[in-house]
């Protein structure tokens, strides 16, 4: 698998691995003052135990988005798509549907919308960026309409007190994550489609010359992305006690894109790795945890996190441009 990755992706993964270890040490150092070593280790253990639950939605959405970005497309509407998933879940819950039906409908709604984005881009022949930028506003509005119409007495948010609804997102999150990430990595290791998605992003003209159906390829990436994002939406909803479609997963797309790009996936497509995305998500999560200890002010944390994301994406663009120039010079 490593041999099929490009050198920049491999380098990025090594760097991320070292960065993650460094962040863990930083968090540990932040926990030390005022505590004993065993106490600090115990608190660090708590942070680590909570990690799968906290990162599962972002991780799954990031893997789905990675596949889409590989083809040279993007989905900017994923935060709003999750809100629609939440709204559908709320409708089912408020009408007394069993948990399985609520979660299933959430998964189908969110996944279906992402796949629908792929279809729209294919049928309308316009870039996915435009389609999903429109979806960013449209789906958020759709989520609010759905809860206002479909949830009796909805007053801005819906509380879900029953513990049974939190089992997938809280108790089973690590297992979901393990199987979903394992499946994605298996696909990358042994599947043809991920390589074709990369080929699509690398050179559509070459794919066309080899007789590949580009629109079908792009749609298959959106379908894959839809499944993972639907699963992520389900775990996200399941991990919340209240459903608030107006604020749910607001700005989620930005941090997911940042994690994907940080993981070595080229924002213009054609290059990347699911493993890199995994490390990118973990890096951003640990950085956020470290910021909690470094800054008391939540607004300052947000500002630093935003700057970090911007820096990462900007850095990748500069790297990409440099590589492109070198290619031209050759």
């Amino acid at each position: 698998m490593l041999s099929r990755m490009t050198a920049p992706v491999r380098r990025r993964m090594v760097w991320l691995l070292a960065g993650n270890v460094g962040l863990l040490l930083l968090i540990f150092a932040c926990l030390m003052p005022g505590d004993t070593v065993p106490g600090a280790i115990s608190r660090l253990g708590t942070v680590l135990v909570d990690t799968p639950r906290n990162i599962a939605p972002e991780m799954l959405a990031a893997i789905g988005l990675t596949a889409i970005i590989w083809t040279g497309a993007i989905d900017l509407s994923i935060g709003s798509v999750m809100a629609v998933g939440g709204a559908v879940f709320a409708m089912g819950y408020s009408h007394g549907a069993p948990p399985l039906v609520c979660f299933g409908s959430c998964l189908l709604a969110a996944g279906g919308l992402v796949a629908g984005n792929g279809l729209l881009a294919r049928w309308l022949g316009i870039p996915a960026l435009i389609v999903t930028l429109a979806g960013l506003a449209a789906y958020r509005g759709l989520a609010l309409v759905l809860v206002n119409v479909g949830v009796p007495g909805f007053d801005g948010n819906l509380t879900v007190p029953e513990d049974i609804f939190r089992v997938p997102g809280r108790d089973w999150a690590a297992w979901f994550l393990l199987f979903a990430v394992g499946g994605a990595v298996w696909c990358e290791l042994f599947g043809r489609l991920p390589r074709l998605w990369l080929a699509h992003g690398s050179s559509p003209a070459a794919c066309r010359l080899h007789g590949l159906d580009l629109s079908r390829l792009a749609f298959s990436a959106f379908l894959f992305g839809g499944f993972y994002l639907g699963l992520g939406a389900t775990l996200y909803v399941s991990n919340q006690q209240t459903i608030d479609p107006a604020r749910m997963a607001l700005g989620f797309e930005l941090s997911v894109i940042a994690a994907v790009v940080l993981g070595g996936t080229n924002i213009f497509g054609g290059e990347g790795s699911f493993l890199g995305t995994l490390l990118g998500v973990v890096f951003l999560y640990l950085a956020r945890q470290a910021l909690i200890y470094a800054f008391d002010d939540p607004h300052a944390r947000q500002a630093v996190e935003g700057a970090l994301i911007l820096g990462v994406i900007g850095f990748d663009c500069v790297l990409h441009r440099t590589a492109h120039r070198m290619e031209e010079l050759k």
């Binding site: 490009t6 290791l189 042994f190 043809r192 390589r195 990369l198 080929a199 690398s202 070459a206 007789g211």
Partner: peptide
Amino acid sequence: LEYCGHLTVAENMLLGERWPRRWGGRIDW
């Protein structure tokens, strides 16, 4: 030339063809 720069030579050569597989549908690299 049109090619996928980040893929291997083998992948570029066999891009539009069936790729050899093992049991379970795994690509036989």
